[in-house]
Simulated scan of single mutants.
Amino acid sequence: MSIASDGDIKVEGVSLRSLPKISLHDHLDGAVRPGTIVELAAEIGLELPAGDADGLGDWFTKRSRSDSLVDYLESFDYTVGVMQTAENLTRIAREFVEDLAADGVIYGEVRWAPEQHLAGGLSLDDAVEAVQQGIEDGEDAVDRSGRSIRVGQILSAMRQSDRSLEIAELALDHRESGVVGFDIAGPEDGYPASDHREAFDLLAENFFPVTVHAGEAAGLASIRSALLDGRALRLGHGVRIVSDLDVIDRDGDEVQVKFGDLARWVRDREIPLELSPSSNVHTGAIEAWGTELADHPFDLLYQLGFAVTVNVDNRTMSRTSLTRELALLVDAFGYDLDDLEAFQFNAASAAFLPIEEREELVEMIADGFRRS
């Protein structure tokens, strides 16, 4: 096993970057290339904390190690700042798709909050259409390169604002033109899903898929509200579900655990957890268990049968990729190709797609791992 400087790793002689992957929790404003930020900021006179791509990348990396979600989120002022025109949104979305494909992703869902991109005069519809144009341009570019990728939009409402119903309506308006799901994002603690019950009711009435950031910066009550008030089909992060588990005994790989009602429900119903290992360390989401990736309860959740998926959350801020996240998990927990394939199967099954298309993704993953 050898980890290259770019985060790639070989497991059983196979490069992880070459394997087919599914990305479910990936923020558009957390994945802007530093070089693109520098270029676009210069055009609008936005002052940055560093004047070149490498320096800005270093600044994001340092900022992301704050151990605080609130501090972590402040770094988005610079990415969102250059995402206020249709042209810039389209470019950034296109580059996002190209970067996913270069990382071996065959299906991705990109989440972003349209309400944060109106300062330049765009309407909500204008913003969604600009991002969709970039996604389609990126998909076409990837197709021309001989690869294939599909990307759907998840529209996020900011949980500290009062526009969730409007964003839910926006998602429904664009469900036939690229939008596949709805989310609430932003500061989690103190802003439960129940604050947005009207939006979630509308989405449920229209059978529209929902994922909710929960169990990242807040605990079990946040997860409970996501499931009961938000009718979430997936949990954004959800790592703090571990608080509802009582580890009675651990002997090597054997673990005896007493489940709380909430943890048992999430496990038994196979509600997917959109875990983001590096980000969960950087934002302090796992602070109750430690400060290093090896302390992450990912492996405990996996061994207990939770539907774990692996995600990047914010590629720019955490200076990572899906390949790198898998590499870190291999290094921390000794996973083999069968384990990594299982994570991709979980993600494919959780995608906000019709079952026929999810089954097709599962076949593509199986074929890709088999050919490796």
Rank of each mutant, 00 (worst) to 15 (best):
I286W: 12
A141R: 13
H213M: 11
A193G: 02
I37P: 08
E188T: 03
A214K: 04
R33W: 12
V247R: 15
L228K: 04
L227G: 07
A93T: 14
I3C: 05
A4T: 14
I37Y: 07
Y335F: 13
H196P: 07
Q132H: 11
G190P: 00
E166N: 09
D299M: 00
D189P: 04
S278N: 09
E270M: 10
V142R: 06
L19N: 02
S2A: 11
V281Y: 03
T211F: 01
L24R: 05
A86E: 14
R371H: 03
T61R: 12
V212Q: 08
N88R: 01
G219L: 04
E254H: 11
I44M: 13
E74N: 06
A217F: 06
L203S: 13
S148R: 15
T283C: 06
G57R: 14
I223Q: 04
I241G: 00
Q132K: 08
R269M: 02
S194R: 02
L329Y: 00
E341H: 09
R371Q: 09
G81L: 06
D173V: 07
E12D: 15
W112Q: 10
D125S: 13
D249R: 15
D336C: 15
A221M: 10
A332P: 15
D99A: 12
L329F: 04
A327G: 13
Q116S: 14
I9V: 14
R264E: 12
I241H: 05
I271M: 01
Q160P: 00
L24G: 10
H237A: 08
S349H: 04
G284R: 15
F76C: 04
V266S: 03
D6V: 03
Y78A: 04
H282Q: 14
R175V: 14
Y191I: 04
A157H: 11
F298Q: 00
F259Y: 14
L24T: 08
R197H: 12
P354L: 02
E115K: 05
D71T: 06
F298N: 08
K258H: 10
P20T: 12
I135S: 08
V70S: 03
D201C: 04
S18C: 12
R163M: 07
T211S: 15
L245P: 07
E87T: 14
D77C: 09
S321W: 02
L220T: 01
L118W: 04
I167T: 02
R150M: 10
D249M: 06
F96R: 01
R63E: 10
L24I: 03
P209W: 00
L300I: 00
F208S: 07
L203V: 06
F333N: 09
L328E: 12
D29A: 06
A347L: 06
D71L: 11
P34T: 04
E136G: 05
G178E: 07
E292K: 09
I271P: 01
I355K: 08
I223G: 01
E166A: 11
A285P: 01
I241W: 01
K62R: 13
R163P: 07
D173S: 13
Y335T: 02
E198K: 12
R144V: 01
R150C: 05
T316L: 15
R150N: 14
S5T: 10
E188M: 02
T283W: 11
D140M: 07
E136W: 07
V179P: 08
V239Y: 08
R197Y: 05
G146E: 03
D251H: 12
L353N: 09
